[in-house]
Write a protein that binds this DNA or RNA. Structure first.
Lengths: 200, 200
DNA sequence: ATGGTAACTGACCAGCCGTTCAATTCAACC
DNA sequence: GGTTGAATTGAACGGCTGGTCAGTTACCAT
């Protein structure tokens, strides 16, 4: 009993990545076996190795894909007028993008320690690129006198931690909708850096 | 070759917990074997089971001990005058306590999914108790007109995420000392909830 | 000196791990 | 209708897993 109907290579590959993302997020990279992933796809473990050289690459590829998508989407944002608007836009974007991909976000933040050094360096570089986007907004805003920030790097990390925290509790269909959460968090982010004007 | 000198039971127990905490934080619960823990203590794997019924209890005990210590220390805080002072005190306490226990914090936030349901419920209840402390501060402050908060629960989660994020990057002997970090974060926390007075 | 016992070893258990690969199956092409 | 080759199976590899336990050691009280 090999393949059943039609050519599967273009279907099985994405299905493996989806199953791995789902299982890694739920149980953690180290706790998930290749056989579990294969079972979720409906295939034998050996077949996975037609699509990934090993388990580690499966993890690294998921994380890289997520961060590259995040960076691309961030770069595609329209230019906003003024520091407050830029920060509000970033906050809303960050929450929206993360809320829609809870599994990928979870993995990207929790499985860093399971990456081999080379993969870790690559992923870390992408993460830093994204942080730099926010840091630039804060730096410019401070230079323009729009924000009150004792330390730009600290404010960057604090805001990202706050905004990303949404993924820990947000559930579709919960008490608050996505738009409300975005508005509330954008408002808090602006206030936290002492924004004078209102652009939430 | 059994025990070498003196009675070890009061030494080996804590050493096992310390080794487990260290290794779980570094590599993750699922990725650490009982034999690795035993090796770090300088003992054979079987000896671990004189001090813990199984690996799962080792994890649950570490998390429970951490959260109970956190709650006790929080409860021992002197009463602060007014909402701003209370929030500033909480922010400083939270950062200080977490900064000093990076391994325990890491485990408490990352290994929840590796807890069996019964243990998870117990740990989650402790975590919620701690959140309620902050939420009470915010609720009282809002009622007193000191804070501007659209949603108290959201603000609670946002602040905790922001404050806890410090443990992701803070290193002893880094660019900023503990006192500076506490001051900057307490200030941001106050501003984020629209505190009118200054009590950072 | 000797018996008791707390502390620990080291071998063992069944079972799962990531990974490999010869053999098989089946759609597509000639 | 036979051939090709991509897709997949299923068994196997050595090695590691959490956990058990009979046996050994070294301290302590007597």
């Amino acid at each position: 009993m090999a393949r059943k109907t039609g050519s599967h290579s273009e279907i099985t590959g994405p299905r493996i990545r989806a199953a791995a993302e789902h299982l890694f997020a739920r149980h953690g990279y180290a706790a998930v076996s290749m056989r579990q992933i294969a079972a979720e796809v409906g295939v034998q473990a050996g077949a996975l190795y037609l699509y990934t050289p090993d388990k580690q690459s499966l993890l690294a590829d998921l994380m890289r894909a997520h961060l590259e998508g995040l960076l691309a989407a961030c770069a595609a944002l329209p230019e906003a007028p003024g520091p407050e608007a830029r920060l509000a836009q970033f906050a809303r974007f960050h929450i929206g993008y993360h809320i829609e991909r809870p599994d990928a976000v979870f993995i990207a933040y929790m499985e860093l320690r399971n990456l081999e050094p080379a993969n870790f360096a690559a992923i870390e570089a992408l993460r830093r690129q994204y942080e730099d986007r926010l840091e630039a907004i804060l730096r410019d805003g401070r230079a323009a006198g729009a924000f009150t920030i004792p330390d730009t790097k600290l404010a960057t990390l604090a805001l990202i931690a706050m905004l990303t925290g949404v993924t820990n509790w947000y559930r579709e269909g919960g008490r608050l909708g996505r738009a409300e959460v975005e508005a509330i968090y954008a408002d808090m982010a602006l206030k936290a850096v002492g924004a004078t004007g209102i652009a939430g």
